[in-house]
Write a protein that binds this DNA or RNA. Structure first.
Length: 447
DNA sequence: TCTGGGGTCCTAGGACCC
DNA sequence: TCTGGGGTCCTAGGACCC
């Protein structure tokens, strides 16, 4: 692939840059353990239900790909080393990666840990040349992180991402062929690029949409140019139809969004051995609730909506959610809601995955912040105590009680049956749990 | 060949309010 | 007494991305 026309683009001709680190997780593992150099390495779950998250090019030679079931990967490559993944380490590298790009421009939008978009328009006046900047980024990432990457430059996000993909090494007949490293798609080349791409190359087109489009006889991006948007909308929904028709014309208005705020957080786990019945879910929910609560507190967020997802052995999944009139961030309340939601699900099938999520974030009120500062704590611990106290334990119990009332109203009193079997009534037991978590000598006995 | 764990966005239907 | 239409919020499910 050549970068014709050879005239280097200006910032206005190639304002969007996309960088994607090569085989990121697996590469970090090799940096930390040089004995792995030259061996096929992947990061992912090694168990029967594991999936490959990242694979080195050495592993890709054997047909190993990310997203592939580990069982399949091992079959294709019996010598594959599958490592469990150390996400804190990857986050560390990711921060350094972002810092290098931020030296070029602060206008970056990370997509996961290993890739990001940058908008170069702010550099117009500095006379920055996009190709030079791209090569310089690549050099610094190689020198300072010992990681390889591909960089794409284009008029918009759609082509910048396609370009970085094309800049990568490829595997041809079991051999790794080096990539170009940096690829620029000039405006005159855009149409030719699109014409040869399958629809699945477009952002947002996965297996399900690819199959739907195939049933409509649409296999190539160029096919989308001939189709009526309303007709497409009847099959894919108006938003997807509009997006695809625009992409097929090379039109992508998405901006690079700096500081995108998270809208949900959660934790889920797939079990090597499926769970059966509510009792087996109970412990899992407690653990998940603790993780979710800690994450919320770490981000100083309160969540109004708690959602539970259960996936059965046949991969069918169901979800339940409950929105409260107030935000919560404590494990006791989140667990109580999660448990009540679980009780509304038919659990006769065995369960392979349980997930608990928090969303509808609300800001802590200024009043609460002021209260917490009034404690003038010198340590993190004291600050945390202040936060807890400032929100008032009373409020926690009220939150719990109201949550339980809400759930009962929707699912009936029996929804809390197993909580109740520890006491006369679910509320009492919830309070007992609360007391266990917060200590006995507080003023909440009246609930 | 069989699908993880972190997320985002879209859709459709129902409840409720004006 | 019966009724419309629009807006907003919530819920459940589906699809997608890395």
């Amino acid at each position: 692939m050549s970068n014709l026309p050879s005239e280097a683009p200006t910032v206005d001709e190639a304002p969007i840059l996309h960088v994607d680190l090569d085989a990121f997780f697996a590469s970090v593992e090799i940096l930390d353990d040089p004995s792995l150099v030259g061996r096929p390495v992947a990061v992912g779950g090694a168990g029967e239900r594991g999936v490959i998250a990242s694979a080195t090019y050495e592993a890709r030679r054997y047909g190993v790909r990310s997203g592939m079931a580990s069982v399949v990967a091992r079959r294709r490559c019996p010598t594959l080393v599958i490592l469990p993944g150390r996400f804190e380490r990857y986050e560390e590298y990711s921060r350094r990666f972002r810092a290098i790009v931020t030296d070029l421009t602060p206008t970056i939008e990370p997509i996961g840990l290993d890739e990001l978009f940058a908008d170069l328009r702010g550099l117009r006046r500095l006379g920055v040349k996009p190709l030079d900047a791209a090569w310089e980024l690549r050099r610094r990432i190689e020198d300072e992180l010992r990681l390889a990457c591909g960089v794409g430059l284009a008029r918009n996000k759609l082509f910048a991402k396609l370009a970085s993909k094309r800049s990568k090494p490829t595997v041809v007949e079991g051999r790794v062929r080096a990539g170009e490293g940096v690829v620029w798609v000039s405006a005159p080349m855009e149409r030719a690029w699109l014409a040869e791409l399958p629809v699945s190359a477009l952002w947002g087109v996965g297996p399900a949409t690819t199959a739907k489009l195939a049933r409509l006889g649409l296999r190539w991006v160029r096919d989308l140019n001939a189709v009526d948007e309303a007709t497409l909308g009847a099959h894919l929904g108006p938003a997807m139809a509009a997006t695809l028709v625009a992409y097929a014309r090379g039109d992508d208005r998405r901006e690079v969004v700096v500081d995108r705020e998270a809208k949900s957080l959660g934790h889920d786990q797939t079990f090597a051995q499926s769970l059966r019945g509510l009792d087996e879910l109970r412990n899992v929910l407690r653990g998940h609730a603790g993780i979710v609560a800690r994450a919320l507190r770490a981000q100083h967020q309160l969540a109004r909506t708690i959602s539970l997802i259960v996936r059965f052995d046949d991969l069918a999944s169901v979800s339940r959610s409950q929105t409260l009139s107030f935000g919560v961030d404590d494990a006791v309340a989140i667990e109580a809601v999660g448990l009540a939601l679980a009780e509304s699900i038919d659990l006769r099938q065995s369960v392979r995955l349980v997930g608990l999520y928090a969303s509808s974030f609300v800001e802590r009120s200024d009043v609460e912040l002021q209260l917490s500062f009034a404690f003038d704590a010198g340590t993190e611990d004291a600050l945390e105590r202040a936060r807890l106290t400032s929100r008032s334990r009373q409020a926690n119990y009220e939150a719990l009680r109201d949550a339980i009332d809400d759930v009962r109203q929707r699912f009936g009193r029996s929804a809390l049956g197993t909580l109740a079997d520890l006491g006369d009534d679910g509320v009492d037991v919830a309070v007992q749990r609360g007391r266990a978590a917060f200590g006995p000598n507080d003023d909440t006995a009246q609930i």
